[in-house]
Design a protein around this nucleic acid. Structure first.
Length: 274
DNA sequence: CAGGTAGCCTGTTAGC
DNA sequence: TGCTAACAGGCTACCT
């Protein structure tokens, strides 16, 4: 569920609430979400640390803690990280709670239990990213058009699975891959080797535009996604093709088709995209 | 190496 | 209406 714009919105909504706040303690109800270190060590290391910064890389939300610790949180499909008053009833899928020094709670809830947390030293982040094969963030200013064209253009295979490959560009998921390809007028199954330099440039521009607009609209809520305050996004009404099989293409009016690309649903206007 | 599938889970929806 | 199968925004491991 949460792709780059959603994780960014979680970050911006949580920031004023938890920046500078101390974590008094942690309660873990589902240990398997903690990937490193072990659950006991995780709890002991987190306790009494202040949250000194928030960052994002691709779909990872990074909480910087004092004494140079860093907590990398991945929400996967249905994970939610919500700041909440402690007297509010908990969601039934609450797997972990941070007890904060202001008396509130930061809750991790995840219906499908796919989300993960990794606690590490700040200095281990680069190693973590390289182990995970995490490429440059899709909105990173350092990811120039030329660099993008080089990273994507040098590969083989269909374009859409490559857009979803976090090691090439980090942050794009299925929704935005479909939207980006529609905006760039490129069919998801086009072999990358057949894309012209002009098409790759269009793809880069579409990627930056779609993701930026989605961030401005606080992300897409099709079902489960909520931000750090528990509120849904509002980009879903602006989706051109994703989830719109049978509806008219906003550009040409032809019915939007649905197909499978690399095992994932693609939504395509076969007149506009080729 | 490209491409496909199963698996991790729970919940919702499409179709019979 | 009631049941079952397919599917859902991610990612990894493993297979061909």
């Amino acid at each position: 569920m949460p792709e780059l714009p959603e994780v960014q919105t979680v970050l911006t909504t949580l920031k004023p609430r938890i920046l500078g706040v101390r974590i008094e303690g942690v309660e873990v109800f589902l240990e398997k979400i903690i990937k490193s270190p072990g659950p006991k060590e995780f709890v002991a290391l987190i306790k009494e640390r202040s949250i000194t910064g928030l960052a994002r890389r691709g779909k990872y939300l990074l909480l910087e803690l004092d004494a140079s610790y860093l907590l990398a949180i991945h929400l996967r499909m249905t994970g939610q990280l919500v700041y909440s008053r402690s007297d509010k009833p908990r969601d039934r899928h609450t797997h972990l709670v941070f007890y904060l020094s202001d008396g509130a709670e930061l809750r991790f809830q995840d219906m499908r239990q796919f989300g993960t947390m990794n606690l590490m030293l700040l200095g281990q982040l680069d190693l973590f990213c390289s182990q995970k094969g995490l490429g440059p963030d899709a909105l990173d200013p350092a990811l120039t058009r030329e660099l993008f064209k080089q990273r994507i253009g040098d590969r083989r295979g269909q374009i859409k699975p490559l857009l979803l490959d976090q090691s090439l560009v980090a942050g794009i998921g299925n929704i935005y891959a479909n939207e980006i390809l529609w905006r760039a007028r490129i069919h998801p199954e086009r072999p990358v080797s057949s894309l012209t330099p002009g098409e790759l440039a269009k793809l880069y521009q579409a990627m930056r535009q779609v993701l930026t607009e989605a961030v401005e609209h606080r992300g897409t809520t099709l079902r489960d996604y909520v931000d750090g305050d528990g509120n849904p996004g509002d980009f879903q009404s602006l989706l051109a093709v994703h989830g719109r099989e049978g509806e008219p293409c906003p550009q040409c009016g032809q019915k939007i088709a649905r197909m499978k690309t690399g095992g994932r649903s693609s939504f395509v206007c076969t007149r506009c995209q080729e």
